[in-house]
Nucleic acid binder design. Structure first.
Lengths: 344, 344
DNA sequence: GTTAGCACTCACGGGCATCGAGTGCTAACA
DNA sequence: TGTTAGCACTCGATGCCCGTGAGTGCTAAC
């Protein structure tokens, strides 16, 4: 048996209806609500075929059919292939990131908010992650008589900072001089390399032992627990609005997964760095998400780093809408992180 | 009718049992499970009195009694008065903030995790908030040819940073010189004052118009949308484990409240800055939390700023345990933020 | 003041009938 | 040959009834 054009149309209608209502859809519904000039009996025959082909499931004999993961897959693939992602609605939706927003983390948090409130699903945004960052500048800023703030600017714009103790009292100028030395010595090094070089530098500039020791401690520690990328989540409560999660246990599992940010980041990032990824139900590889889908898109910064934005929703997600929203927000983030700083 | 010692003991037993099981407790349960040498009939009489006094509610006539908010209030008050908060268990629980943790936000996030996993309730931690921060140091760190990172260290240790555009190319030394000038000029000023002074400074040092304009823009913006305090939440999913939230709608309301951090911060902070606060059910003043209680404690930094840690749980919360945990963690945070930096 | 006894209440859960949405099949029709 | 009307059948959902049991309140006896 083959898929023909009519079967395709009917499948489409079933998917549309199920996405809308979340209730198994019967043959009558299709023959009446959608413009097929066919009777329910004919639809029934076709549905029976579609079930045999693996596109439909039947929860029990006297209920309607629901689309299988395979059906969504087909649906999404044609969606992606025909490029139905409306990019131009960008203008109509407006820009969500007006004004100057300074801290990358704020932008990311905000993006998660925006995406979740637009889609009514759960949104996850990961900060960009590139290769090993390389040091550009090291600067010590006096904080109090004995404390200094270490600011390390890397080529990824990522700033790591921490307050350390500088042993003897040092004035601003001394700190600046040391900063210059450190910058020259460490420029272009990765953080790991910097770590290795510190003892040698300490030998050359003596007298600042304590400070360098603290700096060393700070860097090694940073190595051990690498600053995982920032993960922003928005709209977790949205999921509870869908009947899929009217079971409290399921909901709890889902929520606690959303809380373990590291795991969540792995799941979201799991899809490589393609422009769009759609993983449906079992494709997610996460048991807790057996009846969820994950849609991701990527954005990039001027350094060519890739960040990820994603939406988690029930398998009967409004894929088309979600893809288009992710597309828009992805572009806006890219604009912002690449144009924003240097060209504006 | 008066409360006597026996009524008190019985009420105590009822509360204990209800906290444990979450099920209305009957007279037999009390007479058997607890060491009162009284028969169920006697307990029944006493319970009837306690109900009349407003300490017990009866969901329906053939069910047991449940403690009212007033009962919890009494319970907590005696708990607080008799100082049953076991402070010494501090050692047995161990220190949760071992190792050097650098960023205040990380510490706060971590604290929320720890508290929620110890209590099995939802934890909220607010970053310290004091009076207007005053500038200590301003430093410009070169990032690229045309960009610089502004680091402003305030007396609250709070560092605000942002990348701004410095017009013409400036080398590290020039930026340092400007930084020194700015530091001298702006030291001790609040951010608002700094804002006001910039134009005047710009007039004196000419040639760096663009940079100062950017700096000005950055500061005014910071004024308009004051950086609200950091709010860390942990264990929201814990709440779903309690039968109180087996109703999905209730759960969703609760969760979406947890998501609006600003509102949440207001609620948690709503209690002033007392050492301990317990608000029970209606006392929270939040309709979504009609059957929740909020317990808060405060911690402080060396600058005398107050931060808040809090636990949100069902009214039948293990108050004693929660108070003791908050006590411990509060002390640890205080130690960390006041001793940690300067004395260690 | 305490307790045993007893009638009464009422949520809960199982059993049962009903309902209705939906299916599959067959036979008739174009 | 494809489409449709008709019909018997399935099975979850809904609603009702009723027995059960935990728990109460009251009374009378200790």
């Amino acid at each position: 048996m083959e898929m023909d054009e009519r079967k395709m149309r009917i499948l489409q209608a079933i998917i549309d209806d199920y996405i809308l209502t979340g209730v198994p859809v019967g043959s009558r519904t299709i023959s009446r609500k959608y413009e097929t000039g066919l009777s329910s009996a004919t639809i029934r025959n076709e549905m029976s075929d579609l079930e045999e082909l693996g596109f439909l499931d039947q929860p029990h004999v006297s209920a309607g059919r629901i689309p299988s993961a395979k059906a969504y897959r087909l649906y999404v693939d044609t969606l992606l292939k025909t490029g139905t992602i409306p990019d131009d609605s960008r203008s109509s939706v407006g820009r969500y990131f007006a004004g100057r927003v300074h801290q990358m983390e704020d932008v990311i948090d905000h993006a998660a908010q925006v995406i979740s409130s637009l889609t009514h699903y759960t949104a996850v945004v990961l900060s960009p992650k590139g290769s090993q960052p390389r040091i550009r500048t090291v600067q010590l800023v006096p904080v109090s008589a004995e404390m200094a703030l270490v600011v390390i600017v890397t080529d990824q714009g990522v700033v790591r900072d921490s307050v350390i103790r500088v042993g003897s009292q040092m004035d601003s100028d001394t700190l600046y001089a040391i900063s210059r030395t450190l910058t020259i010595e460490l420029q272009g090094a990765t953080l790991a390399e910097a770590c290795d070089r510190i003892p040698e530098i300490a030998r050359r500039i003596n007298g600042n032992d304590q400070m360098l020791r603290e700096l060393y401690g700070y860097l090694t520690e940073g190595q051990k627990s690498p600053r995982r990328s920032h993960v922003a989540v928005g709209g977790t409560s949205n999921m509870l609005a869908y009947p899929e999660y009217s079971d409290v246990d399921k909901a709890r599992n889902f929520l606690s997964l959303m809380e373990t940010r590291d795991k969540l980041a792995d799941i979201i990032r799991g899809s490589g760095e393609m422009a769009f990824t759609v993983r449906i139900g079992p494709e997610t590889g996460v048991p807790e998400m057996a009846d969820c889908s994950i849609v991701t898109a990527s954005y990039s910064t001027r350094d060519g780093q890739q960040g990820t934005i994603g939406v988690i929703g029930p398998t009967r997600m409004q894929y088309s809408r979600v893809l288009s929203i992710l597309n828009i927000i992805g572009h806006q983030l890219t604009d912002m992180f690449s144009g924003g700083d240097e060209e504006r």
